[in-house]
């Protein structure tokens, strides 16, 4: 970021003229606004966590229980072992890791060519970008017929390959931005010294974008981990990712809010950890590379 505000150890809001309204009143309003916002945006998270440790007797009470008397962790064992959460973790993990790994290899190479050689011109860029924004339902029918024709509905392969339709475009688009930011001098001097293009790419370019590679991979992992619509269209109960399991838990007569909340928390934990590790890159990744933040 160009601004000093984010990194200076002391608040500079009043000392330096800012793009934002000044004065003490403004500052107070800001504190209140952020506080109210935090309560609104974080309360549902708190509700999920607190529900996940409530005993069944407190799931459907009126008034609702906001602070349970004791912590009841059996919801987690129920979610993991009775509701297939453990298998869900494995399935989500296998699908998300595979799609991300394959997407990284293919997407990074493509990104480099798009950035440095403008290969395919704007048409190819446009094609890739359109795919990133295509609603899965729009290709749902042919996608389903395609995988049934191959007898692969409800398999890892179908989900992994189908997830590539947005994973490759995402990685290609974000990495393209990082490659464009990298000065060409580095590769040029390597090429002058007789390195092949592949060598220059692997030995010179990739090490220079290592943090970006890690960040992009983790964000792609988050998207794959969270994916829901394709899973709904292509799963029938054998391959069950965590987002897919949640709706199946609603079918019982008695709504098992504690178990559901525990399952949701299990699904949320990895992405929340990754988000905190990745703070610096979140903006760029989430805006699909359109906005830089450091």
């Amino acid at each position: 970021m160009t601004s000093t505000a984010a990194h200076s150890p002391f608040p500079s809001g009043r000392a330096v003229p800012t793009p934002v309204t000044g004065g003490r009143g403004g500052l107070l309003a800001s504190v209140v606004g952020v506080a109210v916002g935090s309560v609104f945006f974080l309360f549902p998270i708190y509700w999920m966590l607190v529900t996940s440790v409530k005993p069944p007797s407190e799931w459907l009470t009126s008034p609702p229980v906001f602070i349970p008397d004791r912590l009841y962790f059996q919801n987690y064992t129920d979610a993991l072992f009775n509701w297939g959460g453990l298998k869900g973790l494995v399935d989500s993990g296998v699908v998300a890791v595979s799609a991300t790994a394959i997407g990284m290899v293919l997407g990074t190479f493509a990104a480099y060519s798009l950035a440095r050689f403008r290969i395919g011109g704007t048409n190819l860029s446009f094609f890739i970008l359109s795919l990133l924004f295509m609603p899965p339902v729009a290709i749902g029918i042919p996608m389903f017929l395609f995988w049934s024709a191959l007898g692969l509905v409800d398999t890892y392969i179908a989900l992994i390959v189908q997830y590539l339709t947005f994973t490759i475009p995402f990685i290609a688009w974000v990495m393209k931005g990082f490659f464009e930011d990298l000065p060409v001098d580095l590769e040029e001097s390597a090429l002058v010294n007789g390195a092949s293009r592949l060598r220059a790419f692997v030995d010179i370019v990739l090490p220079n974008v290592r943090p970006a590679l890690v960040a992009t991979a983790l964000l792609a992992f988050i998207f794959n981990w969270n994916e829901f619509s394709i899973a709904v269209l292509l799963s029938r109960g054998r391959v069950t990712t965590l987002p897919f399991i949640l709706p199946t838990m609603m079918e019982s007569h008695y709504v098992l809010w504690g178990d559901i909340a525990a399952m949701a928390a299990v699904g949320a934990l990895p992405v929340v950890i990754i988000a905190f590790l990745l703070q610096r890159y979140l903006v760029r990744g989430l805006s699909f590379g359109a906005i830089r933040s450091e």
């Binding site: 999920m48 981990w225 829901f228 709706p247 988000a275």
Partner: peptide, 13 residues
Amino acid sequence: TLLLIPSILSSSV
């Protein structure tokens, strides 16, 4: 980042 948690959750969750 804390406020961003809703945006990175699965829409299913």
